[in-house]
């Protein structure tokens, strides 16, 4: 009887662990609603489902409904430290020799890559939050890009939370980003189309209009545009 009870407890614990994964639940729900929307042929019902898909996408990306998201100032402060780290390593690489110089040069490049990633993710998310029609267009063009981008916004927000809690611990931020970038089985994280394009044109993102163009114009079905996040 006790073995049976233990078995039930283990099963219940497994179920609760599996269902407590908020992101996974949210992701599954988004995929389910997106599928329903895709299959629906009745115009009225399709419209209703689209509102639902948009709500789920906002939930997945962490876009609040009642206010505009403002995260750029915090991200800028964090990126300033990352850029300083990059400069320091670059300086050190010039005085070092052999493998040590190469290692420092790489650290400098990784710092810049992290800074670029965080700025672009924040800028795209903020722009989406200020003009929800951008998200609408993305949902119509490529629902899977929203899912893919959600992974990137989550890590950006996690890093931001760490920064707000731990201040100048820049090595902690690099460690979080390194784990994220190298956690896929093959050791490299493949960026979404939207992030790949943004990271390739960071200066274009400075003006909000350019961000809108960047999000709206590309052919999202062409996933050859996806680039790897170059942090190891």
């Amino acid at each position: 009887m006790s073995a049976f009870r233990n078995f039930i407890i283990v099963v219940m614990a497994m179920i609760s662990i599996a269902s407590s994964s908020d992101f996974q639940t949210c992701r599954n729900e988004y995929e389910r609603v997106a599928q329903l929307f895709k299959k629906e042929t009745n115009d009225q019902e399709k419209q209703r489902l689209f509102v639902l898909v948009r709500d789920k996408a906002k939930e997945l990306l962490g876009i609040p409904s009642d206010r505009k998201l403002v995260i750029s100032p915090h991200i800028e402060a964090m990126c300033k430290l990352l850029d300083e780290r990059a400069k320091n390593f670059e300086g050190e690489s010039k005085t070092a020799t052999g493998n040590e110089a190469l290692k420092k040069q790489r650290e400098s490049e990784y710092s810049r890559e992290i800074s670029n990633f965080l700025k672009v993710a924040a800028k795209i998310l903020e722009t989406m939050s200020s003009d929800i029609t951008i998200l609408d267009e993305l949902l119509l063009k490529s629902p899977s890009t929203v899912l893919h981008f959600a992974h990137e916004t989550i890590i950006m927000l996690q890093v931001l939370r760490y920064f707000l809690n731990n201040g100048t611990d820049i090595e902690g931020i690099v460690a979080i980003m390194r784990t994220f970038a190298t956690s896929p089985l093959n050791g490299s994280y493949l960026l979404s189309v939207i992030m790949s394009l943004g990271m390739a044109n960071p200066t274009a993102l400075e003006a909000s209009e350019s961000t809108r163009t960047l999000i709206k114009q590309p052919d999202f079905s062409d996933k050859t545009l996806c680039k790897y996040l170059n942090i190891h």
Binding site: A34, F37, K38, L139, L140, K141, S142, P143, S144, N186, G187, S188, F220, S221, K223, T224, C226, K227, Y228, L229, N230, H232
Partner: peptide, 17 residues
């Protein structure tokens, strides 16, 4: 040594919602 090589061929399918 670096595996993050963007010249690798991508497999994907277009989506039509």
């Amino acid at each position: 040594r670096n595996t993050a090589d963007d010249s690798r061929i991508a497999i994907f399918f277009p989506e039509k919602p």
